[in-house]
Design a binder for these strands. Structure first.
Lengths: 150, 150
DNA sequence: TATTGTTATACTCTATAACTATA
DNA sequence: TATAGTTATAGAGTATAACAATA
């Protein structure tokens, strides 16, 4: 999917168009950069949650990432098959799976984060001055705002 | 899909997360605002292209929006059924369909654009000062940049 | 032979409902 | 009975291949 070839601002100026295409492009770059490590942008999101807090249940990870718990099953299946995370029944409540990064997973995570930061840096490189920071902060403000009419 | 409840910046600070969730939220707001008019954000994109240039073939509209021509068929089918656009074989090359806004379509388009602008305005309302403008310009710069490694 | 629009088909992503095992 | 994980299934959205009409 290539972008705006003969489109004027009437079309490309829409915020929806801009957000969608910016995301698509970043996601493609990210996917390619992470490929050699065996992970993709979505599973890197899972690793980030696992790395940033105490061992959590599958469902908690799913809720934190706003992903359906049924979707999380396949995601963690794949990471487990790769030896990146482990599933262990929680002693005390054996319905729950404790999901943790393995030692190998910690290494993959570190390298994936490095690759991810490099891609993001390259992605915002064309922006001048503090614009990259403003962009990030503005998006964060918007995403953490509760938009009504829901 | 609700957003960040207990997520730290380790996760929500990723540009990919921010772009994806900002888009999802805006798209949901836009969908709801356009619903009474019988259009959705994607078909509004089609209307924008049709309104901003000389009558074009289906394929040209598809290329301009980076949408597959087979996807465009269903999109225009729906708009045609609603009486918003018309398809006419191009005299001179009857393989091509000239796609145009009907009179009713022009009215729908005008009202959809008004609704769209209102939603975008509300969406960036939490941003201070010129940040909304910087956001828009930064995204435009990124989207029109040719990112290599493709 | 190449091109536009179309249909049929498949693949991805995601969500809903139902099942199991635990509680 | 309620909950975590799982499975099966279905619905969007999109892409690929093949076909008809036209050039």
């Amino acid at each position: 999917m290539s972008n705006s070839l003969g489109l004027g601002r009437e079309v490309t100026g829409s915020l929806g168009y801009l957000l969608k295409h910016a995301h698509l492009e970043l996601d493609a770059l990210m996917t390619r950069a992470l490929e050699p490590l065996g992970v993709d942008p979505r599973s890197l999101g899972v690793l980030r949650v696992l790395a940033s807090r105490e061992p959590t249940s599958q469902q908690e990870v799913a809720q934190l990432l706003s992903v359906d718990r049924t979707t999380m099953v396949a995601l963690i299946d794949s990471l487990e098959r790769q030896g990146i995370v482990s599933r262990t029944p929680l002693p005390g409540d054996r319905r729950r799976n404790v999901v943790e990064l393995t030692t190998a997973g910690l290494d993959v995570f570190a390298r994936a984060e490095a690759a991810s930061h490099a891609v993001e840096h390259e992605f915002v490189a064309p922006l001048a001055g503090r614009d990259a920071t403003v962009l990030r902060e503005a998006l964060h403000t918007i995403v953490t705002t509760d938009h009504p009419d829901a």
